[in-house]
Simulated assay, not measured.
Amino acid sequence: MSTGSGWDSMVRVVFLHPDLGIGGAERLVVDAAVALRSRGCSVKIWTAHYDPQHCFSETLSSDLPVECVGDWLPTSVFGYFHALCAYIRMIYVTLYLVLSGEEFDVVFCDQNVLFYCHFPDQLLTQRRSALKRFYRGPIDWFEELTTGMADRILVNSQFTAGVFKQTFPKLADVHTDVLYPSLNSSAFDVEVEDLGGLLPAGRSIVFLSINRYERKKNLPLALKALAALKGRLSVGEWERVHLVMAGGYDERVVENVEHHEELRSLVSSLGLEDHVIFLRSFSDKQKLSLLHNCTCVLYTPSNEHFGIVPVEAMYSRCPVIAVNSGGPLESVAHGETGFLCEPTPEHFSEAMQQFVTDPKLKQRMGNAGRERVQQRFSLQAFTEQLYCHISSLTQ
């Protein structure tokens, strides 16, 4: 047994993740690691990319060590073969871990052994050409094969459970347990700063979009909904409205750069320049400030496997307007903690208008949202369930 790394006699858990950035999958990994650490497990994260300037604050603690290897490996080849490069990077990390001599009881991977299915990898990319289908064929086959080798499979929502069985027909009889992602509420129960002059004076109705600058997140919906809202309001009401487009942004990712520019062009074409502000790669403090000071969160992706942003918003007593599909169907209570809408500017703007005309709506829905998160998505419930799964694998 190796002791050079400082791992103790408790259950030793290693997390493998390809890119420890600030997306939803990374939030899930960090929360799971923090949860197991709180139960006395010895935890370490291994990844192919980690930037201390672009990460969740918990990973900066010595209590949650992060080992980064293989960052020199390419993430694509001339803008192509992203999946193949990701697999190669993860294989490299895995081999490096094995050869390091460190011992562990459970491997936690969301990409066995405990497999936490954030979403099937093969559904995260489209196959528009025969060449792409040919290229992805072996990778998809390998994903299903290796997933079936896991000792236990968890999914992050009932929606993902259904998608899992549809995507992997050979694993249709494999049992999957639903483990909802949780919220590390201690990170939200801190003193929150105001927006510090971020918005023009008089903008008392602030809508907030939080998502990575990726086309699949359907961020134009928020902008088009804002334009539709303008037509529903009087001049005086409109002057109180502002939209903050906050998103994860990585200059290494071409799509982030391109889509940010596409969104800015859309704002200009819609004549919304004075009512929209973009924030890229904001800090945790800025995020808390935005959630506590905004009126409502606009969550625009369709068929999102879970989506932690609505949960974060509700805990911050901020209502959510989300698309009526995927994970939000299980997190957002329609008419109580927010609204579930068809993904059209008309439906979103109709829900947004209610927050302009009813000043007390935010408080009512906000309080209900906090209570819902505490009941269904608490870190304590997540920790106990995850620890039970981990413990059973070591017996």
Rank of each mutant, 00 (worst) to 15 (best):
Y315T: 07
L28N: 01
T94S: 11
L73F: 08
L73I: 12
F115E: 10
V190K: 07
I205T: 00
P138G: 09
A130E: 14
L208C: 02
G338R: 04
C388S: 14
V178I: 10
V311F: 08
L243N: 02
L288D: 01
P138F: 00
L279Y: 05
V107M: 15
A322R: 02
I91T: 13
S9C: 10
V30Y: 05
G247D: 02
F104A: 13
M1Q: 15
H54G: 06
G338H: 02
C318E: 01
R27S: 05
R39W: 09
G271H: 09
G231I: 02
V253N: 11
F15E: 01
G338L: 06
F282Y: 09
L361N: 08
T295S: 13
E312W: 03
E193W: 02
D51M: 10
F282K: 02
F15D: 01
N184S: 03
K362M: 11
T167M: 04
E371Q: 14
N112Q: 15
I277D: 06
V98R: 15
H334N: 10
L124C: 14
C294M: 09
C41T: 12
N112Y: 12
V320I: 11
L266S: 08
P328D: 04
H54Q: 12
L221Y: 09
M1T: 15
E350D: 08
G24F: 07
A222Q: 09
F115Q: 12
F282C: 09
Q126W: 04
N211V: 06
V276D: 03
I153Y: 02
P52M: 15
E251D: 11
A32P: 00
A351T: 07
F339L: 09
Y92L: 06
H259K: 11
G231D: 14
S185Y: 05
L393P: 03
D8Y: 12
L198D: 02
Y387F: 13
D358A: 13
D284A: 00
Q166Y: 12
F282P: 06
L64G: 10
A222H: 07
F207A: 03
G24T: 11
T3F: 12
N218Y: 05
H242C: 03
D274Q: 15
L195G: 03
I210L: 04
C117K: 02
F168M: 01
V155F: 06
V29I: 15
R12C: 10
A161P: 05
V155K: 01
T160S: 05
A161M: 14
S209D: 08
D250M: 08
A48M: 15
F115D: 00
V69W: 06
G248N: 09
C85Y: 07
L288Y: 04
V77Y: 07
P181F: 00
I210H: 01
I88W: 15
A381Y: 11
G137W: 14
S185R: 11
D177C: 13
R128N: 14
L379S: 07
E312R: 06
P181I: 01
E258A: 10
F348H: 02
A313L: 06
V43W: 08
K217D: 03
D63M: 12
A222L: 13
M365F: 03
F306C: 00
L20E: 05
G23R: 10
Y50V: 08
I277W: 05
P359V: 12
K217G: 02
L95G: 08
I205F: 03
S186Y: 11
A25S: 14
A333C: 14
C41D: 13
S391I: 08
S100H: 03
L73V: 11
H82R: 08
M365P: 00
A246W: 04
